Structure formats: structure tokens, C-alpha cells
Simulated scan of single mutants.
Amino acid sequence: MATSLDALLPEPQVDEVSVRILDAALAEYLDHGLRRTSVDDVARRAGLGRATLYRRFASRDELIQAVLVRESRRFFTEINDAVQSQPTLADRLVEGFVVGLRNARKQPLLGRLLQSEPEFLLPFLTIHGGPAIAIMRQFMADQYRQSPEYRPDTGVDPDQFAEILVRLSMSLVLTPETCLPLETDDDVRATARRYFLPLLRQW
């Protein structure tokens, strides 16, 4: 993998029982939301005792965090896999934006929380969104730096450039109404090439 997700998002426990718990928790959150899901609900759905669950995840909040981290890792892994086969830095930028926007729009848990419990999620993406932005910015900046075309003497700061794209992408996910043509992957690809690639002209 081109960038280490372990440094940005440490992987939750992956033993068989922990995976069952995380799968059950995700299913409960999708069906009932975070507020209405208890530890007992998750344990019951996983077919495990409450004590077994607590041996892996010490609290309800720790379990929620583990599910969110696992879903975030899946999100970034799909973007990473999509850009690795792209031959140029410009192609990496475009395809990363396409896959990222598509997956964010279709991510089941993100969509569920934005619809039913925005008061839980929105602070972590807006007024308290610094840590989330930092993770996404670092991931994208690493992709750019590891491109064979990248040259550090151009005056373009990958972190600053990545942050511009991250903030734009978050805005499009949280407020999808737009005059930009973004209905299909081809629309997103064309828009990215038209408006974003000029920012890379120094590379």
C-alpha cells in the first residue's frame, strides 16, 4: 500500500470474535442508529455474551469508535487501490476524487447517520472536524508525494493542495445540492479535470 493506514487509523482488533462483534455492531447501527443501539443489542446479534464483548471493547464508545475506524479504513483502502494503477499524478488526483466522492455518497453508515443522527456526526466533520480533515489531508498528500512525477522544488505544498480538495469534497458530501455536473463518475472525472488539474500546472 502506498501510504500506511496503520499510522493514520490504527486497525481495530481483527480476531474472529472481534470481527463478529464489529459486523454485528455495524448491522445494528444501520438498522437502528447509534442512540438506539445498546451493547446488549450488539452482543445478542453477534450471538455472544455481554462479558465476551466487553473483553474486546471496554465501553460502548470504544465499540462505536472501532466500527468507525474500520469503515474509514475500508474507504481509504478503496481510494488507494483505485489510484495505484493510474500512470500520472493528474490521473491519480482525478481518480481519487471520483472514487472518494462516489464512496462517500454511497457509504451506508455515513448516509444513515447524516439522515437520522446528524447531531452526532456533523460536529466531527465541521466545527470539530480538524482531526478528520488532518487524516484525509495526510492520506492524499502522501499519495501525491509518492507519485514518480512529484518534485519538491515546484513550490506547490502537497498538504495545502490536499486540504483544499478535502474541504471541497466534504462540502459536496454534506451539501450535495450543486450546479456542478457530478451525477455520474464520468461527470465527476470531467469536472475534476476541468477545474482541479489547473492547480497542478506547476508539477
Rank of each mutant, 00 (worst) to 15 (best):
D40N: 13
P148Q: 00
T37Q: 06
R50D: 08
D40I: 14
Q86T: 01
A104V: 07
L114N: 05
R56E: 09
R102Q: 07
T77E: 15
P118C: 01
L93W: 02
I127Y: 15
G100N: 03
R102T: 06
V98T: 06
T88N: 04
R137H: 01
P148N: 01
E119T: 12
T37S: 07
G130N: 14
L48M: 10
F57H: 12
A141K: 02
I135T: 08
A82E: 03
T88S: 03
S147H: 00
Q115Y: 05
P87A: 01
P131F: 06
F97C: 07
T126A: 06
R102P: 08
N103R: 14
R50N: 09
P108K: 05
G100M: 03
Y54H: 13
G96Y: 03
N103W: 12
E62Q: 15
T77D: 11
Q107C: 14
D81I: 12
E119A: 11
F57C: 08
G129K: 02
L48F: 02
G130M: 13
F76Y: 10
P118H: 04
G111H: 05
F120D: 12
D81C: 10
G100D: 02
A134Y: 05
S59I: 10
M136A: 15
I133G: 08
S147Q: 00
L48S: 01
Q84A: 14
N103E: 09
R55K: 13
R73Q: 05
Q107G: 14
L122I: 07
R105C: 04
P123A: 04
G96T: 00
T88F: 03
F139H: 01
R35I: 13
I127G: 14
N103C: 13
A90G: 04
F75S: 10
V69K: 12
D142L: 11
P118A: 02
R36M: 13
R70G: 14
A58L: 15
G47I: 00
E62S: 13
L114E: 06
S59C: 10
S72L: 15
P148M: 01
I133E: 10
P87M: 00
I135D: 11
A104I: 03
A43H: 02
L121R: 08
V99P: 05
V98M: 01
F139S: 00
N103H: 11
L48R: 05
V83S: 01
A51G: 12
Q146G: 09
P131C: 07
E117I: 04
L53H: 01
G100V: 02
I64N: 09
L68W: 13
I127E: 15
G47F: 00
V69G: 03
L63A: 02
P123Y: 02
E117F: 04
R73W: 09
A104H: 04
A58H: 12
A90R: 04
K106V: 14
Q84T: 08
Q143F: 08
D40S: 11
I64G: 08
V67A: 05
Q84W: 13
N103Y: 15
V94R: 00
Y54N: 08
A66L: 12
G100T: 06
I135R: 09
R56K: 15
L110W: 11
R45N: 05
G111P: 04
D41S: 12
D91S: 08
I133C: 10
T126N: 09
R73C: 07
